[in-house]
Design a protein around this nucleic acid. Structure first.
Length: 504
RNA sequence: GUCCCCAUCGUCCAGAGGCCUAGGACGUGGCCCUUUCAAGGCCAAAACACGGGUUCGAAUCCCGUUGGGGACGCCA
């Protein structure tokens, strides 16, 4: 089995294309097959090398590896269409000589006008076939005299072209609705339908898995396979991925390209797992299934026929699962850029700084959907000011009440001679003593403590947060972690500000 | 306009003639847990587009209607 993924380097890697890349990957990996990566850059206007580079990087980031491609090479290269022009040109010429194709001298303007006319008159929009009737000898003379000409395929009349689609079953078209399409443009570059056939044929591709939008290209391509005397591959067309408004997923729906999802803090395995779930199910009611396992279960005949809508909420849910299971050192590594952006860490972390970061991960990995939320979740650690904490009137009112004051005074007193509360037990022990001293319990006990320590009414569990701030306070500046206040300093300042203003 | 594809909860999937009083997941609502938020646990509301056939029996098969999507380019 030989399959391929063939992006054109005209922009970022779109999420819909990732899904077809994934299906090809699953198919190849599940059948001991070969995955080919081919760059379809025949449109010189829109193709860029940067775009090719980022597409390759995105695929690597996703973990969708290929066996033959423009970077790694292979037996049937080159793997960039722009480097295969001779192959298309020679074959197109043969087709002209055989009478299966002909030169077309029509101008773009002419064609455009005809098309509009046909559409307006309720006719199928297809090429009129004007140049098909030009005498081949005359056409040859005109071409030799330098007149620009494209080469068009002579679509056979009155035939039924049928194929058995691997995902949707039998599909057929009548050739009457297929126009004579361009094989080679006037500038001698190949048009899509021709280049694909020449390449897939020459590269020995056995299974073509692509988007539903190519379904009507299939009969044209089948005709070319026939003319070129190649054995056609099997085709499988997977349905589209749409936005919530049922239109093609595009920028106005939000993120659509791989790099945007990476930037938002989605894990590659989560993205792929979610994408596989669109129009396919691993079975047994399972949804979170690792890629390797999916490859074992994947089958094109199980892929759904109808378009699916991209739902970022469900993606988030999948991502959370993978975040939960990810090793803390990897999570710390991945979180670092976000924390850096927030100014919480510097460019270089010392080993101690890194160890601290890793120790912070239990605070975020079960409660965050995406990595771009970590700095917000950790904000209370790095940002604290007693003045700011006491600013909101509701907080102020709560904390000025007698019961709350008793809690805070007890807390301050205990903290003064307590060791750093570097672990859960130490904090609990201290909370217990504050409880006895103040006579408060439950929320009445913990809420004032939380406010005094973080300045906020909610946030991560104090059990985890307090040890984290205490450990952080002991770090020296060479660690690369922004200096933060420990519990004692926070409460001391808090009490000071509180008593300063209370008598006024 | 012509051709092609598609049609189960708001969304993603399960269902390949009787197992369906249509199952799971996301989301939504409620309850529980709890030192708050989140996470987690439990419960609930929520769908076979419509109309004809075929059959003892249809979400499942056939036809039509409607709706959605795609293609019709010297883009891919």
């Amino acid at each position: 089995m030989r399959v391929r993924f063939a992006p054109s380097p005209t922009g970022h890697l779109h999420i819909g294309n990732v899904r077809t890349a994934l299906f090809n990957w699953l198919l190849a990996r599940g059948h001991d097959g070969t995955l080919i990566l081919r760059i379809e850059d025949t449109d010189a206007e829109r193709s860029t090398v940067e775009s090719e580079t980022t597409i390759l990087e995105d695929l690597k980031w996703l973990g969708l590896n290929w066996d033959e491609g423009p970077d790694s090479g292979g037996p049937v290269g080159p793997y960039r269409q722009s480097e295969r022009l001779g192959k298309y040109q020679s074959r197109a010429r043969v087709l002209v000589e055989q009478g299966r194709a002909y030169y077309c001298f029509c101008t773009p303007g002419q064609l455009e006008a005809e098309r509009k006319d046909q559409l307006a008159n309720g006719l199928p929009a297809k090429y009129s076939g004007r140049c098909a009737r030009i005498d081949p000898e005359e056409a040859k003379r005109r071409v030799q005299s330098g007149e620009p000409a494209a080469i068009r395929f002579r679509t056979p009349e009155n035939r039924e072209i049928a194929f058995n689609d691997l995902v949707r079953g039998p599909i057929s078209f009548h050739t009457d609705v297929i126009g004579d399409h361009v094989l080679l443009r006037a500038d001698a570059s190949p048009a899509y339908n021709f280049a694909v056939v020449v390449d897939d044929g020459l590269m020995g591709v056995t299974h073509v898995v692509r988007g539903e939008d190519h379904i009507s290209n299939t009969p044209r391509q089948l005709l070319i396979y026939e003319a070129l005397e190649f054995t056609p591959p099997q085709f499988g067309h997977v349905a589209m991925v749409l936005g919530p408004d049922h239109t093609r997923l595009s920028k106005r729906h939000g993120a659509t390209s791989v790099d945007e999802f990476r930037e938002k803090g989605y894990l590659p395995e989560a993205l792929l797992n979610y994408l596989a779930l669109l129009s396919w199910s691993p079975g047994e009611g399972q949804e979170i299934v690792p890629l390797a396992e999916m490859a074992k279960r994947f089958s094109l005949s199980d892929v759904g026929h109808s378009a699916s809508i991209f739902d970022e909420e469900k993606l988030s849910w999948v991502n959370r699962h993978y975040l939960k299971d990810a090793p803390h050192d990897r999570l710390a590594e991945l979180s670092a850029p976000y924390l850096r952006r927030a100014g919480y860490i510097t460019d270089t972390l010392s080993p101690q700084g890194m160890a601290y970061l890793i120790a912070l991960m239990p605070l975020i990995n079960v409660s965050v959907d995406r990595l771009d939320q970590v700095s917000e979740r950790l904000k209370q650690l790095f940002e604290y000011s007693a003045e700011a904490a006491l600013k909101p009137s509701d907080i102020r009112a709560e904390v000025e009440a007698d019961a709350a004051r008793r809690v805070i005074d007890a807390l301050a007193a205990e903290l003064e001679h307590a060791p750093r509360l570097v672990d859960k037990q130490l904090f609990r022990g201290l909370a217990e003593r504050v409880k006895q001293k103040s006579g408060q319990k439950g929320r009445a006990l913990f809420h004032p403590i939380r406010i005094a320590l973080t300045g906020a009414g909610d946030g991560p569990e104090l059990d985890l947060l307090v040890p984290a701030m205490e450990q952080g306070a002991e770090l020296d500046t060479s660690s690369g972690v922004r200096p933060m206040m420990g519990a004692r300093e926070r409460v001391r300042g808090f009490v000071e500000v509180l008593s300063q203003t209370i008598g006024e």
